[in-house]
């Protein structure tokens, strides 16, 4: 199987979907001639023309709003928000407009728009170019949230996002663009809401996604020598979330660690922990541990950034902490 980089895989998904459906178009800042800051759309404007790949002024609300408006009348636009942080400028169009349309029309029309956002840190990118804002959208009914961690998933999920009849936010991690994975020649869209067991284990379940997933895998490998067997799950999409996968893993391990780069407070990890507590309580043998970004803005200095974001070492500590907890003896009432 060929190896493909994450960024190139997304580019292929965009290209194949544009080929397949004339209603699909791309719109964003510097995505045409320049091919995007991270090169994901390189060559697409030359191939499909300026009426399929629109270079825009720097106007996030205007661009996202235009995509939503076009989607209301039959288009399937894919917007690139250059850095996810800039989506703050387009929140009205996403949260008040796109997210509410299906509901407020009584299900008569949806907004099939895909918003691609570059997320997370890439080393000294600091407070306004590093944030992981997925929880805001997880918290917004009407929006679906996708967070691919490998090149193959990125391609398959991007195709699914574009074909989906609802607004889908796709978070692409900066540090994953250069990552290469084996990807088949033909990639079909992956249904949203289907997670994956990335590594099987017996003692503890770690749920993670995007760049942090790879740190979690590293932690899992390192703990083998200590005799701790770690199962690692990649939910791949945050809304919808694969609850079945989580519960079947917890049934086996009884212990849960959630790891992500976004600040812990009010984050996806809190949601997953609540899911486990509410719906999978009988599986849990120890308190849930979250290994997340600190509740701070992202600092500039590399050593501070390293302190803020969970790495394999911190995830391993979290795993050890939950495994050391004596298994709670459940009393039956």
């Amino acid at each position: 199987m060929r190896r493909l980089r994450y960024g190139a895989a997304i580019g292929e998904a965009l290209s194949e979907e544009m080929e397949r459906d004339p209603d699909v178009f791309l719109i964003g800042e510097d995505i045409g001639e320049a091919g995007g800051v991270f090169g994901v759309t390189r060559g697409l404007q030359r191939r499909f023309g300026p009426d399929r790949v629109y270079d825009t002024p720097i106007s996030e609300e205007g661009i996202v709003g235009a995509a939503v408006g076009a989607a209301l009348v039959g288009a399937r636009p894919v917007v690139e928000v250059m850095f996810g942080d800039f989506v703050t400028l387009a929140m009205d169009m996403l949260v008040n407009q796109a997210a509410k349309t299906c509901y407020m029309t009584g299900g008569r029309i949806g907004v099939p728009v895909t918003v691609r956002m570059v997320t997370g840190t890439a080393g000294a990118t600091a407070g306004q170019h590093s944030q992981s804002l997925e929880a805001w959208f997880v918290h917004t009914p009407g929006i679906k949230v996708v967070a691919p961690s490998t090149a193959g998933d990125a391609k398959a999920l991007m195709k699914a996002a574009i074909r989906d009849p609802d607004p889908v936010m796709v978070f692409e991690h900066k540090l994953l663009y250069g990552r290469a994975d084996p990807v088949p020649d033909q990639v079909e869209p992956l249904p949203l809401g289907v997670g994956r067991v990335v590594r099987e284990g017996e003692d503890v379940t770690v749920v993670s996604y995007l760049h942090t997933l790879h740190a979690a895998l590293e932690a899992a490998e390192s703990l083998e020598d200590e005799g701790i067997s770690v199962e690692v799950l990649d939910p791949r999409t945050l809304v919808p979330f694969d609850r079945g996968l989580l519960s079947s893993s917890l049934r086996k391990t009884g212990r849960l660690v959630v790891a992500h780069e976004a600040p812990g407070r009010g984050g996806m990890g809190a949601e997953i922990a609540a899911m486990a507590a509410e719906e999978m309580w009988d599986c849990l043998r120890a308190p849930v541990v979250r290994v997340c970004g600190t509740n701070t803005p992202m600092p500039y200095a590399p050593e501070l950034e390293g302190f803020v974001i969970p790495d394999a070492g911190r995830i391993a500590e979290g795993i050890r902490a939950t495994v050391r907890q004596p298994a709670a003896r459940r009393q039956s009432f």
Binding site: P141, G142, L192, G193, P240
Partner: peptide, 9 residues
Amino acid sequence: DVYMETHDG
């Protein structure tokens, strides 16, 4: 009507 298409989970 929250979504046009809902999924498992």
